[in-house]
Amino acid sequence: MLLIERVAALHRVPIFAELYEHTLAEIAQIVEEVTFEPGEEIIREGAMEDWMFVLVDGRVQIDIGGVEISILEPGAAFGELAILDPAPRAATVTALESSLLFRIGHQPFRDVMHEQPEVMAALLVMLTRMLRASRNMPSAPLE
């Protein structure tokens, strides 16, 4: 995929949508294009990994504890927290159809964040929105 195509794909991702094109070009240079076939696991719940994914083409399913949580379409990002603070994965993500994804590694992304502070600002906005959304979700009953 050409750099300009990578930039366009990143621009469709909400956490990157407000970044300038020159900043997106920096990120586009560090992405690794990976493909998954239907039924292939992209992320396994509990695995220790330090990268995030951007879904460029295809559809994926997110499960927690074997229960379907959601289905993601192109333009979605997942695994963002691991790029900031590697920890066991909270969910399993499986390809539902042939899918093209961008994989972005922890260290290359940290390097871009140091060179382009607006990337850090975009991530802070994303984390704030996630926190707000989690507050609006009903709590699980205590047992």
Rank of each mutant, 00 (worst) to 15 (best):
residue 28 A to R: 03
residue 30 I to V: 15
residue 125 V to P: 00
residue 86 P to S: 14
residue 124 L to T: 09
residue 43 I to C: 09
residue 82 A to W: 01
residue 25 A to F: 02
residue 62 I to T: 04
residue 136 N to L: 15
residue 96 L to K: 11
residue 82 A to L: 08
residue 143 E to Q: 08
residue 106 H to P: 04
residue 79 G to S: 13
residue 58 G to S: 09
residue 128 T to N: 06
residue 33 E to C: 15
residue 18 E to I: 01
residue 61 Q to M: 11
residue 2 L to I: 05
residue 129 R to Y: 05
residue 40 E to P: 01
residue 142 L to K: 14
residue 119 V to H: 01
residue 97 E to K: 13
residue 45 E to P: 05
residue 97 E to F: 03
residue 115 E to A: 15
residue 52 M to E: 09
residue 111 D to A: 11
residue 94 T to I: 09
residue 68 E to T: 14
residue 18 E to T: 13
residue 130 M to L: 14
residue 139 S to Q: 15
residue 11 H to E: 10
residue 102 F to V: 05
residue 51 W to E: 09
residue 62 I to Y: 02
residue 75 G to L: 00
residue 113 M to F: 08
residue 101 L to T: 00
residue 123 L to S: 07
residue 97 E to W: 07
residue 108 P to I: 04
residue 18 E to F: 03
residue 129 R to H: 13
residue 66 G to H: 06
residue 103 R to I: 01
residue 84 L to D: 02
residue 28 A to G: 12
residue 125 V to T: 13
residue 24 L to F: 01
residue 77 A to R: 02
residue 114 H to R: 15
residue 100 L to V: 11
residue 118 E to P: 04
residue 73 E to Y: 15
residue 38 P to C: 06
residue 72 L to M: 14
residue 17 A to N: 08
residue 12 R to A: 05
residue 56 V to Y: 00
residue 77 A to K: 06
residue 101 L to C: 15
residue 85 D to E: 15
residue 95 A to K: 00
residue 41 E to R: 10
residue 59 R to N: 08
residue 90 A to V: 08
residue 60 V to M: 04
residue 92 T to W: 06
residue 16 F to Y: 07
residue 9 A to P: 06
residue 143 E to A: 10
residue 75 G to K: 00
residue 52 M to N: 03
residue 33 E to D: 13
residue 43 I to A: 02
residue 141 P to I: 06
residue 143 E to G: 08
residue 104 I to L: 11
residue 70 S to R: 12
residue 69 I to H: 09
residue 12 R to G: 03
residue 70 S to F: 02
residue 70 S to H: 07
residue 108 P to Q: 04
residue 68 E to M: 14
residue 49 E to S: 14
residue 81 L to S: 10
residue 10 L to R: 05
residue 100 L to A: 11
residue 21 E to Q: 07
residue 62 I to L: 10
residue 106 H to Q: 14
residue 129 R to S: 08
residue 42 I to H: 00
residue 20 Y to F: 05
residue 57 D to S: 12
residue 24 L to T: 07
residue 50 D to V: 05
residue 101 L to H: 05
residue 120 M to T: 15
residue 1 M to G: 12
residue 14 P to A: 06
residue 72 L to W: 01
residue 9 A to S: 12
residue 77 A to I: 01
residue 17 A to C: 14
residue 143 E to Y: 09
residue 125 V to H: 09
residue 15 I to Y: 05
residue 18 E to C: 02
residue 51 W to M: 07
residue 44 R to M: 03
residue 72 L to G: 01
residue 127 L to V: 10
residue 130 M to K: 15
residue 75 G to S: 09
residue 48 M to N: 14
residue 60 V to H: 03
residue 107 Q to K: 09
residue 7 V to H: 00
residue 102 F to D: 00
residue 80 E to Y: 12
residue 128 T to V: 11
residue 4 I to F: 09
residue 77 A to Q: 11
residue 125 V to A: 05
residue 88 P to E: 12
residue 40 E to F: 06
residue 65 G to F: 00
residue 70 S to M: 14
residue 18 E to D: 13
residue 79 G to T: 06
residue 24 L to Q: 07
residue 20 Y to T: 05
residue 78 F to W: 09
residue 35 T to P: 02
residue 112 V to P: 06
residue 61 Q to H: 03
residue 26 E to N: 08
residue 95 A to T: 00
